[in-house]
């Protein structure tokens, strides 16, 4: 195969992997602190992207058309608003169901996802059609042989990497991270040690949702198109990645995300009929991998205590 095409596939795969990993990290964080599955995660990402898009339109409307300023505005509003929303979801939907059967939490967040999706479809101006997301990053490109690396791709990859490292440092090196890990280990003991359990849960949900919003903006900047249904696919794959990586484990989530992207890219290269069947293939991979490794590549913390 042509080197340029191959390079393109690699960049594409890395980008996908980065996005999946960012979504998966959220699932893993929520599962860690609260043992819950929050299915609205993908749709929170979608709403975050729309929030960013709206910010861009607003800024253009009031005459700010410096791309860098716009980018900062988009990121700040998108991430900030989703962090707040994540905390609100945790406070009013997830925590109240803490002692209910886990199925109820799953259902409640699944329904919330529908609410978000439908709200955008119905109430966002012309929300049922895809939107053109602006290219706010420089589009210069470097040619290496027949392969061209675009600056925006490189910046996005770098930024994604930085966010992942940032989250990792936050979890493993700071007091907040310590508290989050303590709660994840053992809620009761953590409470006894004077950790404000509720606060930590809210902060974790804010963090995970903010990261998802970042992934959403990244998605918009890369593909230049967003729509109300985009969160569903990203959510399902992100969740599968988190499971395959072993829920509750950040490195597992990252690994799972890149694994999915790798397989999807491989499928796109190897299967002749794949362009039309791209998503069919992605979902088939989700099912197959879960069947193969239902509890993850990296083993889970403990077996259930009886």
């Amino acid at each position: 195969m042509d080197v340029g095409l191959l390079g393109q596939f690699v960049v594409n795969g890395m980008m996908l992997g980065m996005m999946y990993a960012l979504v998966a990290v959220g699932f893993t964080l929520f599962f860690g602190v609260l043992d819950v599955i929050k299915f609205s995660h993908g749709d929170v990402l979608m709403v975050g992207t729309f929030a960013g898009f709206t910010t861009y339109i607003g800024m253009t409307a009031i005459g700010i058309d410096n791309a860098l300023l716009q980018l900062v505005g988009v990121l700040v509003i998108s991430i900030g608003s989703m962090a707040v929303m994540g905390a609100i979801i945790a406070r009013y939907l997830v925590l109240p169901l803490k002692s209910a059967p886990p199925l109820n939490t799953l259902l409640v967040t699944l329904m919330l996802g529908t609410v978000l999706r439908e709200a955008i479809r119905l109430f966002y101006p012309d929300g049922s059609n895809p939107k053109h997301f602006p290219a706010l990053l420089p589009t210069d490109s470097w040619a290496v042989g027949s392969f061209t690396l675009r600056a925006d791709s490189a910046i996005l990859l770098l930024a994604g990497l930085l966010v992942i490292i940032g989250v990792n440092v936050l979890i493993n090196r700071t007091r907040l991270g310590l508290a989050i890990r303590a709660v994840a280990q053992d809620e009761e003991t953590a409470k006894c040690m004077g950790i404000n359990f509720k606060m930590i849960v809210l902060l974790t949900f804010a963090l995970g949702s903010g990261v998802a919003a970042f992934a959403g903006v990244m998605n918009g900047l890369y593909y230049n198109e967003i729509n109300f249904g985009m969160g569903l696919l990203l959510g399902v794959i992100g969740f599968s990645a988190a499971i395959v990586g072993g829920l509750g484990n950040i490195y597992g989530a990252i690994l799972g995300g890149f694994l999915f992207a790798g397989l999807q890219t491989l499928g796109a290269v190897a299967l002749p009929f794949s362009s039309a069947y791209k998503d069919v293939f992605a979902f088939a991979v989700v099912i197959a991998i879960i069947a193969w490794r239902p509890t993850g590549l990296i083993a889970e913390k403990t077996s259930e205590r009886v």
């Binding site: 886990p102 699944l110 499971i243 069947y277 998503d279 979902f283 099912i287 879960i290 239902p294």
Partner: peptide, 29 residues
């Protein structure tokens, strides 16, 4: 059945969601 049985707790949910999405996309293409 295999993925649904092998997954613990409610992770099976994601298997069925993925299948539902797969079915619809498959029909469309």
């Amino acid at each position: 059945i295999i993925p649904v049985l092998r997954t613990r707790g409610h992770y099976a949910a994601v298997v069925t969601i993925a299948f539902g999405l797969l079915f619809r996309t498959f029909l469309e293409v």
